[in-house]
Amino acid sequence: MAISSKAKRSIGTPNLHPKIMLCMKSQDGDEVHYRVRRDRKIQSLLMAYCKEKNFEYKAMVFVYDGRKLPVKRTPDEIGMEDEDCIDVFMHQSGGGYLASTFE
């Protein structure tokens, strides 16, 4: 849809904007690499990633170098480097659910 058309358009102007290679690492061991613009909010990448992986964006936590990724910032603002990884976690919650099966 809108995404693909936009992506196509950008092929025509490849070197206009500096890009960065980022790796999305989910906890199932899967790694997906993306090349994104350095001056675009990282959120768009995350949303596209979730769409591709069929994750619920809101249920995910994106961690970069141990800190929650500021999704409204750009890779440049965050100070990301080429080949950097973003860890994708699911929101954790816990209370001791399995207790009943143990006792």
């Binding site: 995404i3 790796c23 997906v32 690499h33 994104v36 675009r40 990448l45 596209a48 769409k51």
Partner: peptide, 16 residues
């Protein structure tokens, strides 16, 4: 490891 949504932002901000 694949080149995901190639080129531009997969879901560009403006568009978003």
């Amino acid at each position: 490891p694949s080149l995901g949504p190639d080129g531009d932002d997969p879901l560009p901000t403006g568009n978003n």
